[in-house]
């Protein structure tokens, strides 16, 4: 657990970067720090590994005040990933990843063997090991950056805009891979981003900062979307937050009508839905494990205004109409 205890950072010019921040980032979870530029999110992140020291207040890791620890040793135990990866251009990919293990006293050979495994883990084939960072694409560099941060198997990782230097398509891939990785590893992660969508997508918890280094809201993504603390957060989260918050609701509790109520739905011999007899294309189906957002999308885009649910075998086992969905949402809000 990373604890900020009434932390203030005032820069020499007199500008306040972080204003009385008190927050706890839970162990094993990813906490996204998000906000407009100049809101103190990066400063807060950098106080965790003492790249910045607080003017007052304390930062604790598992109850230990970081200011009492040797800077270099502290940092070697915390993974760090930054925008465009910050890879060392003069070292091969393999030696970049091996950096911290070598620093903490592993032999070069050991460190390289471990580094090779890590490359595989972040989805880079061994042929990249001997290359230099300049020979990689942005997405590949970012993968190496993550591998490098993981190399010493630190319990904590700090990530500063880790995915902002790559194009949206690659970013989507990296997000997916990263979530999978974090599922396996369960690191305590603090990640700075200016992109609220990224924060909501990746964060277990989200801390929204406003200008002047003030924490505007701290909560789960769903809390942020459904109950923004104030106008600033509501504005920052965006207009379509109602629709987006549906991503966090399961369709399991959604009542469905029996398939037999819709003779217009054509089924094959195995009971799988094929098409609407009157309107054609089905447009897709959902299962009980999908989110309400998927169901809503299907209902809206369906030519007859009906979303079809299937079971694990793909057999149609229910239908949901526009107004059933709206009724359910109204019910849920109560």
């Amino acid at each position: 657990m990373i604890t900020f205890d009434d932390v203030v950072k005032v820069y020499p010019g007199g500008s306040t970067a972080v204003d009385h921040l008190t927050v706890e980032l839970p162990t094993g979870k990813l906490t996204a720090l998000v906000g407009p530029s100049g809101c103190g999110k990066t400063t807060s992140l950098r106080m965790i590994n003492r790249m910045v020291n607080p003017t007052s207040g304390r930062v604790l890791i598992d109850g230990q005040d970081v200011s009492q620890q040797d800077e270099a040793k502290l940092r070697r135990g915390i993974g760090y990933v930054i925008q465009s990866a910050g890879l060392f251009p003069h070292r091969t990919v393999l030696d970049n990843v091996a950096t911290v293990p070598v620093l903490v006293g592993k032999t070069r050979r050991e460190a390289r063997t471990a580094a090779l495994e890590l490359l595989d883990r972040v989805g880079l084939s061994p042929e990249f090991a001997k290359r230099y960072p300049a020979q990689l694409s942005g997405g590949q560099q970012q993968r190496v950056g993550v591998a490098r941060a993981l190399a010493a198997d630190p319990p904590i990782m700090l990530m500063d805009e880790p995915f902002s230097a790559v194009d949206p398509v690659v970013r989507g891939q990296l997000h997916a891979e990263f979530l999978r990785l974090q599922n396996d590893l369960g690191k305590t992660i603090a990640m700075v981003t200016h992109d609220i969508d990224e924060a909501i997508k990746l964060g277990d918890k989200v801390a929204v900062f406003r200008q002047g280094g003030i924490l505007a809201q701290f909560g789960t993504p769903q809390e942020l979307l459904e109950k923004p603390a104030d106008d600033f957060v509501a504005e920052f989260v965006g207009r379509d937050r109602g629709l987006r918050s549906l991503s966090f609701d399961s369709a399991a509790s959604l009542p469905v009508q029996p398939v037999s109520s819709q003779p217009d739905l054509e089924l094959d011999d195995a009971g799988r839905p094929v098409r609407w007899r009157s309107a054609g294309d089905l447009g897709g189906v959902f299962t009980a494990s999908d989110s309400l957002r998927v169901v809503t999308d299907l209902a809206i885009s369906s030519p007859v205004g009906i979303a079809v649910r299937v079971d694990e075998q793909g057999k149609a086992d229910g239908v949901v109409r526009h107004h059933d969905l709206v009724d359910h949402l109204l019910e849920r809000r109560r």
């Binding site: 790249m51 940092r75 135990g77 760090y80 911290v100 620093l103 903490v104 490098r148």
Partner: peptide, 8 residues
């Protein structure tokens, strides 16, 4: 910065 953060 990356080097510093890694504990050099």
């Amino acid at each position: 910065q990356a080097a510093t953060a890694m504990g050099y």
